[in-house]
Amino acid sequence: MTKALTFMSGLLDRQEAESRLIAWVMDVIADMLSAPQGGGAEAATLRASAPWGIKHGRAPSVSFHLVTHGLCWLRIPGMEPIRLGTGDLALLPNSAGHALASDRQGALLLVDGVLRKRTDGAGSEIDIAGEGPRTRAICAGYRARHPLPAPLRAMMPPALHLSAQQLSARRDLADALRMLSDATTTHLPGSAIIVDRLVDVVAVHMLRSWLPADLAATWPTLHRDLAVATAVTALHQELGRPWTLDELAEKAGLSRATLTRRFNGTLGESPLRYLRRRRMELAARRLRETDDSLARIAQHVGYRSEFAFSRAFSQTIGMAPGRYRMDSRQQHGRGRSDPPSHSGVT
């Protein structure tokens, strides 16, 4: 009986750790998709006739490719090329340098050299003329974002591939892809905003389809480290709380030094640095999506003064919050007037 109780207790602890870990990783993914540097998603429609090939450089973020007609090869250095047929979807969690081409090998052009911006701001177009079979695809990703933490990058495969048959069983993802295809091929008002949101939806669905099956088995460090998972969960639940390292260490049941060492080892940064980044990402989201004053946003993310908040935001994001709000709205063409600044920060 004692052994059975001990086993059940251990099982519940593992299940709790897994649950916290999965929730944390989904939060990290959400943060990555809404991180403020560069801001926004991009999508391009590709129309190419063989022979052709385009090369994407390495970028610290997510990208994906949906083949809507024909076929192509996804070429990633050090890997066997992946054949993508009509209806296939491939996602690169960390946008490793890669190429799309009509053949398994052959010459490549840099994608920046063949992109043509659409006038409605809803993406770009790539047209490559040739005499051979024609391929159409949607290529999407993010201009510049925070990368995933190093342990998460290490555990994920270079590419997640779903065949057309697998996608047919995922109605939620198939619907999002259909809407994205419509948004990138029509020229209607608001297309840029729709593309932004749908790229997020597709990326989250793809990452979520991979996450539950592989997470606990492939990231044993955090899976075992319930203390770090507890600290991360506490920060997420109360981002606006004036946390000290002592309070967080007590919450995790560790000393300050041990928590810092284990936090750094698992997430690649200290607890308080992680907290500030999370706060600034939340603040950036509110600057983009609301008309809240700087004072209200500062209070929401745990700062007592607009000055302290503005300084932290500028150090983290690289520009003052007022300037960030104005630039992000101009970039997305939302046409909303900026709220009056009560801090004089621009």
Rank of each mutant, 00 (worst) to 15 (best):
F7L: 14
M1G: 11
V62T: 06
P339T: 11
L211M: 10
L188K: 05
M79D: 14
V345C: 09
S270G: 15
A137S: 03
T346F: 07
C139S: 13
L188I: 03
A107I: 05
P149D: 07
L92A: 01
T290H: 01
F309I: 05
A227E: 14
R104L: 07
R273C: 12
A192Q: 12
L92F: 03
M26S: 15
L272E: 14
S314D: 10
W243E: 08
A229L: 15
C72S: 10
S305Y: 10
H69A: 15
D338K: 04
R273S: 15
P151Y: 09
I126M: 14
V114N: 09
G344K: 06
A203C: 13
L115N: 10
D127R: 15
S310P: 08
A192D: 13
S341G: 14
T230V: 13
S9Y: 11
C72W: 00
G10H: 09
L74P: 04
R197T: 06
E247G: 11
L215G: 02
A169V: 00
D13M: 10
W210A: 08
D120I: 08
R256S: 00
L110P: 15
R143Q: 08
L177S: 14
L248Y: 06
L11V: 08
E238P: 00
W73F: 11
F263A: 01
V195N: 03
M156L: 11
A169I: 00
A295L: 05
T346N: 10
G113K: 14
L235H: 02
G141K: 04
L152T: 05
R304K: 15
H205N: 12
P321V: 02
E16H: 13
F309E: 03
L100P: 10
D120L: 12
T119C: 13
R116S: 13
D327S: 08
R118C: 11
G38F: 08
